[in-house]
């Protein structure tokens, strides 16, 4: 059941973003920024987490989920450490994603060469 939810909710988010790609002049970079920031804002408004509890990976895998993750990290850090938590929480929560991307991309650069598109 949760597989079905993950599939169709994740799919719908992507389908909606496709509208932005096809019908506006927005470039992929800007779209990614929009998704992360929206996720963070929706998280702060207590909307994204309940949505994620229902949708599972359908909400956590998209970049909006990454934004929500950043917000959750900051909130927990502020609850725990007060003011300085605002500075601690974001990177702490996103550490795995960013570290993995950096480390594995670097390793990939050692193994792969750029290839022409077909």
């Amino acid at each position: 059941m949760d597989y079905i939810n993950a599939f169709w909710i994740g799919g719908v988010i992507c389908a909606l973003v496709q509208i932005l790609l096809d019908r506006t002049k927005l470039m992929p970079g800007r779209v990614m920024v929009l998704l992360v920031c929206s996720g963070a804002v929706l998280g702060a408004l207590h909307i994204y987490q309940p949505f994620q509890d229902f949708a599972g990976a359908g909400a956590s895998v998209p970049l909006t989920g990454f934004g929500n993750l950043l917000w959750k990290g900051v909130k927990e850090a502020v609850d725990k450490e007060g003011f300085i938590g605002i500075f601690m929480g974001g990177f702490k929560a996103s550490a795995v994603g960013i570290c993995a991307a950096l480390v594995f991309s670097y390793l990939a650069s050692l193994m792969f060469d750029p290839k022409m598109k077909k």
């Binding site: 994740g10 799919g11 988010i13 992507c14 389908a15 973003v17 496709q18 932005l20 790609l21 096809d22 992929p28 970079g29 779209v31 990614m32 998704l35 895998v61 998209p62 970049l63 909006t64 989920g65 990454f66 994603g97 993995a100 991307a101 950096l102 594995f104 991309s105 990939a108 650069s109």
Partner: peptide, 16 residues
């Protein structure tokens, strides 16, 4: 299209 851009896999691709 967006199906590969939106998930965290799109982010990883943009770093790799």
């Amino acid at each position: 299209g967006a199906g590969t851009l939106v998930p965290i896999t799109g982010f990883a691709n943009s770093v790799a």
